[in-house]
Amino acid sequence: MKTILTNKHISIETRKRALQCYIEPVLMYGCEAWTISKQIQNKLEATEMFFRRMLRIPWTAKKTNERVLNEANKRRSLVRTIRKRQATFLGHVMRRGKLEYLVTTGKFEEKRSRGRQREKIMDGLATWLGPGKVSDILAAFKDRDLWRDMIANDYKQGT
């Protein structure tokens, strides 16, 4: 794909569509089950900078990633797309209400392990939707239309 994505004779819009059709699905395979920490989010945002290579901008040019995205007429969207897919899948799992519900909400009666606790899927979703919305999240799972609207509104806001 390097020859296609860096070819100057192909328009940037066609190259962006090729990137979106062939590279992004491979990159996001299985993203519904990921827990995204700050470190992983930074790596995903760095991976999203295919446009620097597509526009053949060397790192010695000292252009910020935001300037490169402006030149490509694009916004950062990879992490937001992953969060939206996670929320959609999580709503599906939670409505099922079986063992997956117990695992996701963490309602097991078990001894906690030592050290810093691992980030759960609900923690990532709560940071994406907002800190005070955890109780709203658990209430909104049951109503599919409310859940879909909640995801769509937060996705459009870009949080």
Score class of each variant (00 low, 15 high):
86 Q>P: 00
128 W>F: 11
33 A>R: 08
59 W>D: 08
29 Y>H: 11
41 Q>E: 14
46 A>W: 00
25 P>R: 04
129 L>I: 10
55 L>Y: 08
90 L>E: 10
3 T>E: 12
73 N>S: 10
34 W>E: 01
85 R>A: 13
78 L>S: 03
30 G>H: 08
24 E>V: 15
87 A>S: 13
9 H>G: 04
117 Q>I: 02
111 K>A: 11
150 M>A: 09
70 N>Q: 15
32 E>L: 07
123 D>S: 06
111 K>N: 07
30 G>Y: 07
72 A>G: 10
146 L>V: 15
85 R>Q: 08
76 R>Q: 10
117 Q>T: 10
63 K>N: 02
127 T>D: 11
67 R>E: 14
136 D>R: 09
129 L>F: 15
151 I>L: 06
65 N>F: 04
91 G>F: 07
102 L>F: 13
69 L>H: 03
42 N>H: 05
20 Q>N: 12
135 S>W: 00
54 M>L: 06
50 F>G: 02
39 Q>K: 09
53 R>N: 09
75 R>C: 10
103 V>E: 13
31 C>P: 00
35 T>F: 01
5 L>N: 01
11 S>D: 11
110 E>M: 14
107 K>N: 14
131 P>C: 04
24 E>L: 15
115 G>W: 06
16 K>E: 12
62 K>E: 02
60 T>M: 07
109 E>C: 14
62 K>D: 03
44 L>C: 01
67 R>C: 02
149 D>K: 10
32 E>T: 06
54 M>T: 02
62 K>N: 14
147 W>N: 02
102 L>K: 12
30 G>C: 03
137 I>G: 06
95 R>L: 06
39 Q>D: 11
57 I>T: 12
30 G>F: 01
118 R>A: 14
76 R>K: 11
28 M>C: 13
111 K>C: 07
65 N>T: 05
59 W>L: 15
36 I>Q: 03
104 T>G: 07
21 C>M: 15
129 L>S: 14
145 D>H: 14
156 K>N: 08
37 S>R: 09
77 S>T: 13
71 E>S: 14
9 H>I: 12
5 L>Q: 06
101 Y>R: 14
146 L>D: 03
98 K>A: 10
141 F>A: 06
93 V>L: 15
29 Y>K: 03
121 I>M: 11
137 I>S: 07
149 D>M: 05
158 G>T: 09
111 K>W: 07
35 T>N: 12
115 G>L: 12
143 D>H: 09
135 S>F: 00
73 N>Q: 11
47 T>A: 14
99 L>H: 04
56 R>W: 08
57 I>H: 01
27 L>H: 07
36 I>G: 05
84 K>S: 05
156 K>M: 11
40 I>H: 06
111 K>I: 12
91 G>T: 11
158 G>N: 07
152 A>N: 10
